[in-house]
């Protein structure tokens, strides 16, 4: 791969997906794109780049974007965010949304479905407290290929052993030979849509909880700021944003504030604003009990 070809791929990926590659990511391109080249019967990355420039290379270009932006995902990846979901976010929302009994959750980088299905499992476990609630989980991703896999919900024996407790496997999956399919009940809890975070996503509507993990790391700061700003507009004052373990908003934007003692968990800077700004018009009576949790602490700032 010549420096010229590398620059071409960098420019192409930045424009198509927002993916930012630094100067020394040749190895990443090679490991991800050689299989794409081979599949297209092309002998090298150079030949792949040449082919991408020809007319009618749309499918190949899509394959290149998908190969570069797809990442392995695990069930209950990093564990802590799901504990926060069950122990912090869900109780807060059960309280704050008690009147409307509606909850909308967005997984902004749903990949092959492990994250939205992990949330669906958490909700299933909390089922007794959620009777009569309407809960939506929307999973979006840039890649159609991963979304197809997410919708099918079929995972290899390796995939169901990384992060997934065996009891969850028994409870929520159906075995078919060496593969395991997530139950139709859980599949029915998640809707998938193709979405590029670089584009306008306001049509998805308002959410209470947004998981946007391990995707911002691929963007430059300007793009991160832009995306975070647009997510903030989709969250009510008491909504939650969850970022990846290695990600932060600090030094990037004032749109979100990290929650004390809850790593990876953020609330909009508007948290603590008058209840009337809340989407479902919850009354003061529905505000959380004054337990000394970071949630209420944030809610009483200002």
């Amino acid at each position: 791969m010549t420096p010229f070809e590398y620059d071409y791929l960098r420019g192409f990926l930045k424009q198509r997906s927002g993916l930012v590659l630094s100067n020394e990511k040749q190895y990443l391109i090679e490991s991800r794109l050689l299989p794409v080249a081979r599949k297209a019967s092309l002998p090298s990355i150079s030949a792949l780049v040449a082919k991408m420039k020809e007319p009618g290379a749309g499918v190949l270009c899509d394959a290149v974007v998908e190969a570069m932006t797809t990442n392995e995902s695990f069930f209950f990846r990093d564990k802590v965010p799901f504990e926060h979901f069950t122990n912090t976010m869900l109780p807060a929302m059960l309280d704050a949304r008690a009147r409307d009994r509606r909850l909308r959750i967005w997984c902004a980088a749903a990949s092959t479905g492990q994250e939205p299905y992990s949330l669906a499992m958490c909700l299933k476990e909390a089922e007794a407290r959620l009777a009569g609630w309407r809960i939506e989980i929307i999973g979006t991703d840039l890649s159609n290929e991963v979304l197809e896999k997410a919708r099918a919900g079929v995972y290899s024996q390796f995939e169901v052993q990384r992060g997934l407790p065996i009891n969850h496997l028994l409870k929520h999956f159906v075995q078919n030979g060496d593969t395991w399919q997530i139950s139709s009940t859980l599949r029915g809890m998640v809707q998938y849509r193709k979405l590029n975070l670089l584009e306008n996503f306001s049509s998805l509507g308002q959410f209470d909880i947004v998981f946007c993990r391990n995707v911002l790391i691929y963007f430059d700061n300007q793009t991160k700021i832009d995306i975070l700003g647009r997510i903030a507009k989709m969250l009510p004052a008491d909504g939650f944003l969850v970022l990846g373990a290695a990600e932060t908003v600090v030094g990037l934007t004032d749109a979100f504030k990290p929650m004390t003692d809850k790593r990876g968990l953020y609330q909009t800077a508007a948290a603590g604003a008058a209840p009337s700004t809340q989407r479902y018009g919850t009354t003061g009576a529905a505000t959380p009990a004054p337990a000394p949790t970071p949630y209420t602490r944030l809610a009483t700032v200002r």
Binding site: Q157, Q161, I166, N167, L170
Partner: peptide
């Protein structure tokens, strides 16, 4: 798997396994 769990196992690994699986379990 169900039989093992009923007999008092805490977790269950299906071979083949790798380092990541052992670590996760």
């Amino acid at each position: 798997i169900a039989k093992a769990m009923r007999a008092g196992a805490d977790e269950y690994i299906m071979k083949p396994f790798d380092r990541e699986i052992v670590e996760a379990k």
